[in-house]
Write a protein that binds this DNA or RNA. Structure first.
Length: 404
DNA sequence: TCTGGGGTCCTAGGACCC
DNA sequence: TCTGGGGTCCTAGGACCC
């Protein structure tokens, strides 16, 4: 990426920093060679690395998103079925393509490099987990020259014993420690364990990883991006926040930004969480708390923020040094299909009755003024309606009877 | 000695990913 | 002075219902 935009950075150690230039989130090979670690807090290591010639850059996600789309378009020429997985990774379905797949992938790689100047590596496997593992080898081991194929059982038998199990997609630190405690070390060890044992130790997620390593696909390619389930705007403060006014201002900003994202995606949020925290790196006096509440589908940004602030005020402790806060919107629903999806009941008769009542009430008092909600775990319908300053909660059953 | 059983929903917390 | 931000999935256990 760096050399695509600034050729003078070729062979120069480069790091990219997170928001607020807090810590290292990407490094060039030269920076890795100098010992810069992923997640290093930059303020702690800047002096020594800058003395060694490391150049630092703030992150630019708009640019990365744009580059990602361009690469996606190039890859669509090599497979009609491309699933973008993250901003810098894509899965391609190669099933049914004629000819030598390795040659095909080398061609794709060369074309991406030629047209976007971005270097890439390709991993081929009969499951996503194997493709990810192959990609890792392609990146790390020069012998593969950027393309590694793990489809054949012979290649797996030869390579699995040479790879640590912590390299596997889905095996993080905690899982790796559990497996090591059982005496397992390599991918070969992991791929050979009993499925029930994998399930017992790592839950169903771990059993899936093992099956995928054995060549049974459990994670199908999904060409349509699934509906997202939540979104968040969170930040650490530049300087600790000591006053309620300062906190209120921060949360207002985050809530506004969250509402903007919501509209951009054509979504509505059903519930909202606000959290505030003191610095977790300062020992002895950590305090963190959160407030969650349901919000009306048609509520505007202003009342969204007001609710956020009311919710936060109740968890605010004035003697604390606040360091981080955030706003999260949950249970998102498509704005255009919202009314139907507001009814979580599985009972079609009740659902229809509820729907009709809601419709008539909404017609009378304005769209979205009434919605059903399942209160706690009680399977009782509750309608909550807000009319101007008047707020009341009533059993939906009573409303239904009244309007019948 | 006995105190129901089984299903469902919700939440918090852990773990993982990039 | 300064230690990221944004997601997903799974499980256990409590609460509730009939």
């Amino acid at each position: 990426m760096r050399t695509a935009f600034n050729p003078t950075l070729k062979n120069v150690p480069v790091v990219v920093l997170s928001n607020n230039d807090g810590c290292v989130i990407a490094r060039s090979q030269e920076a890795k060679d100098l010992g810069v670690k992923m997640g290093d807090p930059w303020f702690k290591v800047a002096k020594s690395y800058e003395a060694q010639g490391v150049r630092r850059f703030s992150s630019n996600y708009v640019l990365y998103g744009d580059m990602s789309r361009r690469i996606h378009h190039v890859l669509e020429r090599f497979s009609p079925r491309v699933e973008p997985y993250s901003i810098d990774e894509m899965f391609l379905d190669l099933k049914g393509l004629p000819g030598d797949l390795v040659a095909h992938c080398r061609d794709a790689r060369a074309t991406v490099k030629c047209e976007t100047k971005i270097p890439t590596c390709v991993g081929i496997g009969d499951t996503k987990t194997k493709a990810k593992l192959a990609n890792r080898l392609a990146k790390k081991r020069p012998q593969f020259n950027g393309v590694c194929d793990l489809r054949s059982a012979d290649d797996c038998a030869a390579l699995y014993p040479t790879i640590l199990l912590s390299e596997v997609w889905g095996i993080g630190g905690a899982s790796a420690r559990k497996l090591q405690a059982l005496g397992l070390e390599t991918v070969a060890d992991l791929a050979a364990i009993n499925l029930q044992q994998a399930r017992d130790v790592l839950t169903v997620t771990g059993a899936r990883v093992v099956m995928e390593l054995q060549g049974t696909s459990c994670l199908p390619l999904s060409l349509l991006a699934p509906q997202r389930k939540g979104l968040a705007v969170t930040r650490t403060f530049g300087a600790v926040v000591l006053t309620w006014d300062g906190m209120a201002e921060a949360i207002s900003t985050y809530a506004t930004r969250a509402a903007e994202k919501l509209r951009q995606h054509g979504l509505l949020a059903t519930s909202m969480t606000v959290f505030i925290q003191t610095n977790r790196f300062v020992t002895g006096d950590y305090y963190g708390n959160a407030a969650s509440f349901r919000i009306e589908p048609t509520q505007d940004t202003f009342s969204l923020i007001q609710d956020a602030l009311r919710g936060t005020r109740s968890i605010w402790q004035p003697d604390r040094k606040y360091w981080k806060a955030g706003v999260m919107l949950n249970e998102l629903i498509d704005a255009t299909t919202a009314p139907a999806q507001m009814f979580p009941t599985k009972d079609p008769v009740l659902s229809a009755k509820v729907m009709a009542t809601m419709d008539s009430l909404n017609q009378r008092f304005g769209r979205g003024c009434v919605r059903p909600a399942v209160a706690g775990t009680q399977k009782k319908w509750t309608a909550r309606a807000d009319f101007l300053s008047q707020r009341y909660t009533t059993r939906l059953n009573e409303i239904m009877e009244a309007s019948a």
